[in-house]
Amino acid sequence: MSTLEEHVDVGVPIDEAWAGLHRVGDYPRFVEGVREARTEAGGRTRLDVEAGGRVRELEAEVSDRRGERVMEWHTTGAPELLGSFSLQPIDQNNTRVQARLEYDPNTVRETFGGPKGFAQANAIERLVRSDLQHFKECVEQGR
């Protein structure tokens, strides 16, 4: 498994950033490739993701450690992906959003296509950074 950690500082209070992470229907606005996202019973989320020229449905289980402001998730089928978002207040009006993603590079490449090795790791890093930047824009514009 490979682990990627990235963060972005957003210009909103921690409660607004937390609420933004939980608006699953907004995921297509800031997560590259997500065409539709919906919440289902039992803490499950379904995502229709377009990658490598095809659309795949992913299901993830999501859980919160609300007191710690940590949202954890993992896919329930292939590809196996694990992740979390941790929120830390910078001050009253700014929040750091830390994203952590654990994945098997070969499984991701087999599922979604794309380059191998170091090139794939760079592509995933760019994608996560871009998604975090889009999240920042989304929550800051929602004010």
Rank of each mutant, 00 (worst) to 15 (best):
M1A: 14
S2F: 13
S2V: 09
T3M: 12
T3F: 08
L4M: 09
E5V: 14
D9V: 15
D9E: 15
D9R: 09
G11D: 05
G11Y: 01
V12D: 01
P13T: 03
I14G: 03
I14R: 02
E16F: 06
A17V: 00
A17E: 02
A19W: 08
L21V: 03
H22Y: 05
V24L: 10
G25Q: 13
Y27D: 02
F30G: 01
V31S: 01
E32H: 08
E32G: 06
G33R: 04
A37Q: 00
R38T: 11
R38C: 01
T39N: 12
T39V: 13
E40Y: 11
G42N: 09
G43S: 06
G43W: 06
R44A: 04
T45C: 07
V49M: 00
E50F: 02
E50P: 00
A51F: 01
A51N: 08
G53V: 12
R56T: 13
E57D: 07
L58F: 04
L58I: 01
E59W: 10
E59H: 12
E61D: 14
S63M: 07
D64I: 00
R65E: 15
G67V: 07
G67Y: 06
E68A: 15
R69H: 15
H74E: 15
T75N: 07
T75P: 01
T76M: 05
G77D: 14
A78Q: 14
A78N: 11
P79H: 07
E80P: 00
E80T: 13
L81T: 04
L82F: 12
S84Y: 05
F85V: 05
F85W: 03
L87N: 03
Q88L: 13
I90T: 10
Q92C: 09
N93H: 13
N93R: 13
T95R: 00
R96W: 04
Q98A: 14
A99V: 11
E102P: 05
Y103M: 05
D104E: 07
P105L: 08
P105Q: 09
N106H: 11
R109W: 03
R109A: 12
R109N: 00
E110Y: 08
T111G: 05
F112I: 11
G113Y: 07
G113D: 07
G114F: 03
P115T: 06
A119S: 10
A121H: 14
N122S: 15
A123R: 04
I124E: 02
I124Y: 05
R126D: 12
L127Q: 05
V128S: 02
R129G: 09
D131T: 01
Q133S: 13
Q133W: 09
F135V: 03
E137P: 01
E140W: 06
G142V: 07
R143K: 10
